[in-house]
C-alpha cells in the first residue's frame, strides 16, 4: 500500500469514527461508512485529489439483517493512482442516502440508475426518476425477490442442475 493511501486511510478513520477499513485479498481498499458520514467522506476525498468518481451502484443482500442494501462507490485519485471503494449499508425500511450530485455532476445518472433498479432514495437529487425502465413500472427489478424467470412455468424442470 502506498504511503499516500495509508495517510488518507488513517485520517478518514480518525475523523469519522463509524468507518471501518479492510484491505482485501485483491489489494483493493474497502471502507464501510455510515450513511450520515458518506457525503463528508467523499467531500474530504475530493479535496485530497480523488476527483474521478469511477462508479456508483447498489446491491441487495436480503439475508443480512439491518443492512439489506448497499451503495457502492468507486472513487479514483488520478494523480496518485489510488482507487478506494466505499460502501454504505442501508436497512430495508430506511433506504435514504445523501446525493453526491453537488460534488460530481456525473453522479446524477448513476444515482438515478441505482434508484431505478434498487429503490434507493438519494436525498437532494435534482431529478430522481426512473432512467432505463419504463416510467410506470411499480417495482425495482434488481431486488433479489424478483426471479428472472416466471415461477409459474411448469414446462421447465431444472431441479437436477443446481438451480
Amino acid at each position: 500500500m502506498s504511503e499516500f493511501a495509508t495517510k488518507i486511510k488513517d485520517s478518514i478513520l480518525e475523523k469519522y469514527n463509524n468507518t471501518s477499513y479492510e484491505l482485501d485479498t485483491y489489494g483493493e481498499h474497502n471502507f464501510i461508512c455510515s450513511k450520515n458520514d458518506i457525503h463528508a467522506v467523499v467531500e474530504f476525498l475530493k479535496n485530497e485529489g480523488f476527483i474521478f468518481l469511477t462508479d456508483l451502484t447498489g446491491s441487495h443482500y436480503p439475508e443480512s439483517e439491518g443492512a439489506e442494501f448497499q451503495v457502492v462507490y468507486h472513487i479514483h485519485n488520478l494523480a496518485e493512482n489510488v482507487r478506494f471503494r466505499l460502501k454504505v449499508d442501508l436497512a430495508q425500511n430506511d433506504l435514504h442516502v445523501p446525493t453526491l450530485t453537488d460534488l460530481f455532476a456525473g453522479a446524477n445518472w448513476m444515482e438515478r440508475e441505482t434508484f431505478d433498479f434498487f429503490g434507493i432514495i438519494f436525498e437532494g437529487h435534482p431529478n430522481l426518476t426512473r432512467i432505463l425502465n419504463v416510467d410506470d413500472m411499480d417495482y425495482h427489478p434488481m431486488k433479489k425477490e424478483y426471479a428472472l424467470e416466471d415461477e409459474t412455468r411448469t414446462d421447465k424442470d431444472d431441479t437436477f442442475f443446481g438451480r
Partner: peptide, 28 residues
C-alpha cells in the same frame, strides 16, 4: 469499461455491474 463483480461462491455471479462509459458521459 468496468466490471464490478460480487461472488457468493455460487454458480452465477451474485451481483454484476457494468461501468459503461457511454452511459456516464452521455449525461453531459
Amino acid at each position: 469499461l468496468g466490471y464490478y463483480l460480487v461472488s457468493d461462491g455460487g454458480r452465477t455471479p451474485y451481483r454484476l455491474h457494468f461501468r459503461r462509459p457511454c452511459f456516464i458521459y452521455y449525461q453531459a
